[in-house]
Write a protein that binds this DNA or RNA. Structure first.
Lengths: 385, 385
DNA sequence: TGAAACAGTTTAAACGTTTAATGCCAAAGT
DNA sequence: ACTTTGGCATTAAACGTTTAAACTGTTTCA
């Protein structure tokens, strides 16, 4: 017998009355005596309001199977019975217990996402928006996002624990590293996942990514169009796909590469500023008139450095970034940059992951989208010596 | 009979051998024939490797109850049996199924956190770090964080769904609004929660918060010390506790309030910049020599505006912010600001929430911490006309 | 008229844990 | 020698679902 029904019986009232009392509903027809009787009966039975399928079944006077069939539309049920069940469920404000459902289905409808460690003094607003959009996409498919932390040492441990203990059905990976250990490990365990970003791993796995090479190329073409010819590139020290966009553009413009104008450093404000020092120290005639940066962070560092040595960004020298960092619009001058379609990427990575989880074949497991150039003050003036 | 055991029996091998084959372990003693037999047997039974407590029990030759007792240390078990169970669990790399455990315990060990909508072009790096630290604190107590999105209309709906469907045990609230509807609703439903920030609700609820009034006061005292006397304040249009720190400081310094020097606007770069326009338009003698801002965002907007009208921040006019935004260190000049102990606040909000969930009384449910002044270039010079 | 088909419903098993209740057996107490 | 005790281990119920299998009563058809 359902627990609520027992409470109701002992108090000698209907199941619905008991529910109304216990859920603090304002129902005029319930006298104080009845209310008290129900409360006493509930406290005697040590019952804490928790509507289950049994309560609905009792109220509708059918079996729990019938309730399940109606609510899941999984088996045809006669109209009158169906009606009764739906009424009962609505009256009791029933919600299925997800834990029980998950146990039965041996799934969790949870997606794990490792929160990137944000050290004090850093930020990653693009990822913020990515996570938000991912949660939105997941929810519209009946999933939720579990964010967990990923310790430095033994990165794969958290993943294994979550999947083995049935906390999640799969993962979304981001911030892929060179030879990322998580990828072979997850593949080895047969765990569904999809990534935001590529890696140099030999194995094949589903991912979404932005075409950074194309993005940088559009920056270059924009600068050519504004009259620049002496253009430097500031990128990462490790694997950098974006630099090829720089080379591509130089090549099609018939401009010879100058190795000294390809500067590599870490993706931080300070280091980027320092890294371009040698370029700026050159005599004016030999100095680049524009610098294409692989990230907004770097571009901001460069702009700050240029300001401190008295060069006017947008006039004396053009700068472009990459990411469309929320701040870039409000810099002085505002920063020309490359915007990634974050909402779309988040939706797609969830699509890929759900396909993996449900073992459906998608026509394409590698989604690479071209980003969009946003022209702003830091590069918009026509340049001519 | 446990499923794995059945696979092993049909293939005529030991349970452990079956496990090793199915988990792709490299064990020299397993011949290809044996491997194939196990794989066949598993595929006949349609078995997907999933070690349960039954497998451990079978391997250790005890009942599942004994396994549970050993692993949870809940009931004394003789040393030899204990040993056997631990060995079996380790050999099979067993992890309890959390879903099953949760169903039994009717808890989820999940904490819900509503992801603030990050509109394109905005960011909230302080909250980033807060969520990260919260996840860390939760995990060290055996909980996980579920991040969900909160639609504009009907904000409380998502909360009700998550709690009623047993997805989470409680919530952490942030971004509290004036007369926040979530608070009475959660209290009404008897749902455990704890907040980051206060609200003007009349009801009592557990929260952590930063003492903004104190923080602004320390900014003011710092400015007095650097020789400023004509200080303006830029804050929010709605409820603003921080402005009282401004008034407090003026009062103890014996300086009369000037209502025109208290400017109120929205917390965005653009609007903050525009809002101080009238102050700067004043003749130099009547103009404030310092502006205390209620957020770094505002301070950055103000700095950008001052730069565009040719005033040198840190020399002609001092600026202070609030939040220690990651960027504030890298502005030119760097921004004096107030740092909140985010890690500590996150830990405390989890402590409060877990106390609510487990119905333990904590000595203090209202935690207000004084923040820390970080002096940087925007206000460090001694000022004297 | 009896068997077969069918629609509508219920029964009961299963998912993987925890844990109260029970059982077993040897040692201790009468 | 017979009960009592106590240590250890097992049995079985419970958590709240889903769903295959079984059942019931009516209609259809030979």
């Amino acid at each position: 017998m359902s627990a609520l029904r027992e409470v109701a019986q002992r108090a000698n009232v209907s199941l619905l009355t008991a529910y109304n009392v216990l859920s603090n509903a304002h129902v005029a027809s319930i006298t104080n005596e009845i209310r008290q009787a129900v409360l006493d009966s509930a406290s005697n039975l040590n019952y804490h309001l928790n509507i289950t399928i049994k309560d609905v079944a009792a109220q509708a006077e059918v079996s729990i199977a019938t309730v399940s069939y109606v609510l899941n539309n999984s088996v045809p049920v006669s109209a009158p019975t169906r009606e009764r069940v739906l009424e009962a469920a609505a009256a009791l404000n029933y919600r299925p217990n997800i834990t029980a459902r998950n146990l039965q289905a041996s799934e969790t409808r949870m997606i794990g996402y490792a929160w990137h460690e944000v050290p004090p003094g850093q930020m990653n607003p693009v990822m913020d928006r990515f996570i938000y959009c991912m949660a939105l996409a997941a929810e519209s498919a009946g999933y939720h996002v579990l964010t967990f932390t990923q310790p430095r040492k033994n990165e794969t441990r958290a993943y294994e624990d979550l999947i083995r203990s049935n906390r999640v059905d799969g993962f979304v990976l981001s911030n892929l590293k060179v030879s990322d250990k998580r990828i072979p490990h997850l593949i080895d365990m047969g765990v569904p996942f999809a990534a935001f970003g590529r890696s140099n791993n030999q194995v094949d796995f589903p991912f979404v990514d932005v075409d950074g090479r194309y993005g940088i190329r559009t920056c270059m073409e924009h600068l050519f169009e504004r009259g620049h010819e002496k253009i430097a590139y500031l990128g990462w020290s490790l694997v950098d796909e974006r630099v090829h966009g720089y080379f591509d553009a130089l090549h099609s413009a018939g401009i010879k590469r100058n190795p000294e104008w390809v500067v590599r450093t870490h993706d931080t404000l300070m280091e980027a500023g320092n890294a371009v020092h040698p370029l700026i120290d050159l005599p004016e005639k030999e100095r680049p008139t524009a610098i294409v940066c692989a990230s907004d962070m770097m571009a901001i560092g460069v702009m700050r450095f240029l300001g401190s040595v008295g060069l006017r960004v947008g006039i004396d020298i053009a700068i472009t970034g990459f990411d469309d960092h929320p701040m870039s619009e409000f810099l002085y001058p505002s920063l020309t940059t490359i915007r990634q379609p974050i909402e779309w990427l988040a939706q797609k990575v969830i699509d890929l992951l759900l396909a993996e989880i449900n073992k459906v074949q998608l026509p394409e497991r590698h989604i690479i989208v071209p980003p969009e150039l946003i022209v702003r003050g830091s590069s918009s003036q026509y340049f001519a010596d």
